[in-house]
Design a protein around this nucleic acid. Structure first.
Lengths: 142, 142
DNA sequence: TATAAATGTAACAAGTATTATTACAAATTA
DNA sequence: TAATTTGTAATAATACTTGTTACATTTATA
């Protein structure tokens, strides 16, 4: 599932919305229909994202009537990097061309050089996001 | 053209490949077929990207027999931020959900908060890439 | 125990984005 | 005049994202 490539999507926004709701209403089983209504997306999308959050151990869920999901860790323990890593699929700078010409001196080496550049760039982002917690984000809401 | 959203693509890799070739073979008209062969992509894609570089004033081109493209500015004047801006289409962290529920206290405010987070994150990236020039990248090739 | 409500997930459909390809007018050189 | 190349439109092919339908399973409670 979600074998996509990069953030050409709303997944970060969706997951942080879900987590914000769960953090704002702790100790309550919020169901996917209610969450979906706040985001204005399909409940199945919410359940798919919740399933990922569940596998990360951030969320617990209860099936059946009166069921729903609840945050299982402190919002101070979840950083923006954690969220980013949960949804990211490749470098910030995108993909590399896969079959560059090995007979060309540039084509031969470029992917090794791009790898370095892409990795460094990703690290910059990860370091910056590491300093921001879900808790701080959620506290901005009254 | 290219009304896409974000870097779910090879455009950064493709443009930097093109620019590297042009920088490595200055004062020569490199044609799109030759460039395309080094990257191993379709020549029309190369011409489309060259058309963007042309509009940015980075490249000059010559039509007709013996024509091609050539770098028109020093590679030290082009930063990775410049290249990133040439291809980027939205925030690093993706898109926002467009119609969040205004009746929900979270749904009502989240896009404003995400806007701040997304902008800050983009700024971090831009600042880091600003320090890297095309010249430095190109010099890594023998 | 029966019913209603909820998750979890598979399968598929629809929408959107990216890349490739074909085609050709216009420009340029020799 | 012939050959070559850009520039760009149009379209096709591929891939990714989101939405939807369906349903087995689980759970609460009347």
């Amino acid at each position: 599932m979600y074998l996509c490539v990069i953030m050409n999507n709303t997944r970060f926004a969706t997951i942080i919305h879900i987590l914000t709701l769960l953090a704002k209403f702790p100790d309550q089983w919020l169901n996917s229909d209610w969450i979906a209504e706040s985001i204005n997306i399909n409940p199945v999308i919410v359940r798919k994202e919740l399933s990922i959050l569940h596998k990360l151990g951030w969320v617990i869920s209860k099936k059946g009537k009166e069921g729903g999901s609840m945050l299982h860790v402190s919002s101070s323990e979840i950083s923006m990097t954690d969220i980013y890593n949960a949804v990211k699929n490749s470098s910030v700078l995108g993909k590399k061309n896969t079959c560059t010409n090995t007979k060309c001196p540039i084509g031969m080496k470029i992917n090794k050089e791009l790898e370095k550049l892409f990795d460094e760039t990703d690290r910059v982002l990860v370091n910056a996001l590491q300093k921001k917690s879900l808790k701080a984000f959620v506290e901005q809401f009254a």
